[in-house]
Design a protein around this nucleic acid. Structure first.
Lengths: 175, 175
DNA sequence: CTATAATTTCAGTTAAGACAGAATATACTG
DNA sequence: CAGTATATTCTGTCTTAACTGAAATTATAG
């Protein structure tokens, strides 16, 4: 079992807290942090010991991280256990998470809003008002989706470049 | 007490669920949804009855929404109770929330990463590796902050326009 | 200033989610 | 194919956060 340095502990604990604030299980986040900081793939056993959590907890959490696509199992010669390692590319990791949270949360919300607009009975009291409000929210989510798709289509650096250019809005508009 | 239509119920319940997935208290989210859909400001009492939650729970939740700056108390002539209403501008609401979550969560994380890099003892085993990893993460958070600041500085529509332009990356680069 | 309405705070309870450990299943080795 | 190592699933326990109701505080009206 790898003993953690102070800095590593600090990072892992902070990451765990961050996770809980964004709806991600603390252990899941901590395991990710540990693997991210690890220079070699770790077997479940070792993860459990290092973080002082149950082996079964690690199993579930790893599976969660695997479905996100940011952790994968690798094999080490002469060891039949699975060893787990984290993706190294930070941008790519966040891109994956954002894309999937969009699919799991944004998309169903748009769906709900669309359905609401359909189901709205114009005879209900205040229907017109309700429609306006829901349509405004739907418009926002549509725009976010559009934004997401456009960003996805661009190479990472380009987005930043474009925004930097945006500071000179007048010029850009003139193009 | 206003009875809710089916569409309103659907919206409020969904919004509550969304909240929990993003680390926002279910009741807080539901109250926001109710106020967002309401054509008039509502007193705490009525909110409590409509959503079937305790009056005190409403009090706490409203205060939370007030600190976000997306709900405010207004007064109705001839009624000494406070009535609460939600901001109407969807973009502005999300902008406020994003800005504050950045301050509460992203900024402290950057701080932690910076501190970690300072505290790293080069003599520790694997210090160089740890430094690389943390620096990569710090770079990401710096970039996100830069992105956030740049977007904040631009009028809403411009961001979308810029990204749409980005589809023609070559041309943009040539500018 | 007193009475009453409204709001907030606080202590205790409840509910949801996280977690551990046992039981089960799967995969590997000789 | 038997035995063993590893991984997963499941059930109950525990922790944490949400919520309630009562008590305390604050504000308003007469």
């Amino acid at each position: 079992m790898a003993t953690l340095t102070g800095v590593q502990k600090q990072y892992i604990l902070h990451w765990g807290e961050m996770g809980t604030r964004w709806g991600i299980n603390r252990t899941v986040a901590q395991i990710h942090a540990l693997l991210y900081l690890s220079s070699r793939a770790l077997p479940a056993e070792e993860i459990a010991e290092t973080l002082s959590v149950a082996r079964s907890n690690v199993s579930t959490s790893i599976r969660e991280l695997e479905t996100w696509g940011i952790v994968r199992a690798v094999h080490v010669l002469g060891d039949r256990r699975e060893h787990y390692e984290s993706m190294k590319d930070v941008w790519e990791m966040f891109r994956l998470v954002v894309e999937q949270r969009k699919r799991r949360e944004i998309d169903p919300t748009r769906e709900m809003l669309r359905r609401s607009l359909e189901e709205l009975d114009p005879k209900e009291p205040g229907a017109e008002f309700t429609r306006e409000r829901i349509a405004a929210m739907a418009g926002f989510f549509d725009a976010v989706t559009e934004l997401h798709d456009q960003m996805k289509a661009l190479p990472t650096g380009t987005v930043r470049k474009l925004l930097r250019m945006g500071a000179k809005v007048k010029r850009v508009k003139a193009i």
